[in-house]
Design a protein around this nucleic acid. Sequence first.
DNA 1: CTTGCATTTTACCGGTCGGTCAACTATTGT
DNA 2: ACAATAGTTGACCGACCGGTAAAATGCAAG
Lengths: 201, 201
Amino acid sequence: MNIATDTRSRIVAAAKTRFHSRSYANVGIQEICDNAGVQKGSFYHFFPSKRDLALAVIDEFADDWANGFVAEAFDPALPPMERIDYLIDAAYFWQKSIKEVHGRMLGCIFGNLTLEVSTQDDILRAKLLAIFTRAKFRFKDALDQAVANGDIAPLNTSLTAEAMLAYLEGVILLAKSQNDPELLYRLGPAIKTLRIELKPA
Amino acid sequence: MNIATDTRSRIVAAAKTRFHSRSYANVGIQEICDNAGVQKGSFYHFFPSKRDLALAVIDEFADDWANGFVAEAFDPALPPMERIDYLIDAAYFWQKSIKEVHGRMLGCIFGNLTLEVSTQDDILRAKLLAIFTRAKFRFKDALDQAVANGDIAPLNTSLTAEAMLAYLEGVILLAKSQNDPELLYRLGPAIKTLRIELKPA
DNA sequence: CTTGCATTTTACCGGTCGGTCAACTATTGT
DNA sequence: ACAATAGTTGACCGACCGGTAAAATGCAAG
């Protein structure tokens, strides 16, 4: 890794924690640069605009997410419905550990950014939508396999997957309003009760 | 209504639409004053700070909500589970009409503000939490009555109410990411499938 | 040794941010 | 009528916003 990419990654790292713990608009480029030990001119060598930094931040979070506990949760070796349990558990422990370190429930960065910027920036919105779409298919795959295995009665796996993702985001939102990750523990498991039936032929 | 309260209400009205359609941090006091036809010094005669404006905006939205379609939805004359259907329907039509007028899905102002400010301002967070708590009890009352009527099997009405509220917020979030209120139509009705059982004695 | 490119530094841009202040004008109660 | 109070005006504050430009440096290939 050369010096250049290191500078870039320090910028993104500084931005990640700040965008996550506060908001997009509330974090200035100057502050990010100060924290990354980088001059502002150097920042604009790597990023044409603040939005492009946000895109990079979203990408890195998505990678963390995909390669971290989500990869573990959606392990094809696990029984499909257990993967969903695992994911909820992982989300709970993640938010809990963030709160222990940071003192605050920070919630889901994708949800946070979606509600903040999606009426103002269609490029960021499209990026976030793509993240959600990928997440939805994780749920859908698990549901499809659960149906194939006969673990659950047939249902509209596509819509139910979307409903489950919505529920997860909603629970995280409510937990953030209470600054209490325990809500995830209490409400999370009910995700498996969600069902959207197949349209009758 | 004297002139003073009119000035104040024009400020709040201008702020409501802007906070809803963009975000808290992205809307400046100057812009609100310009739109309300008020000088900035006059603004600070009525509001000690921007946060206090936000509190007033939240209150007005909460009143609109409580006296508007939510009052209709949670009509005690309606069978309890139909009230929930009604609420989902109303949320759908509301978001749809906003999109028709404004070109955008703006989502739920309480959810939007929660994710934006709740790590940064505990006073605003407390206010938003109070709104959610009230909303939760609307659901809980309906569930309690449904159980009493024998319409649904007994369950943990308090947690299920919270789960339903979370689901509604989550669906609105996802719909906003797609800028498409139709998602509410597709996913909304599944809210009634959510169940959190009573703890076994 | 030199050319050329990537990177970094520094100073700077116009504009906006939330908030303050003192002077001024209406309105109200006595 | 007068004093007190409520409301309004417009200029102003320092700080910060996202973004720019040009000069200085590091570095690698020819």
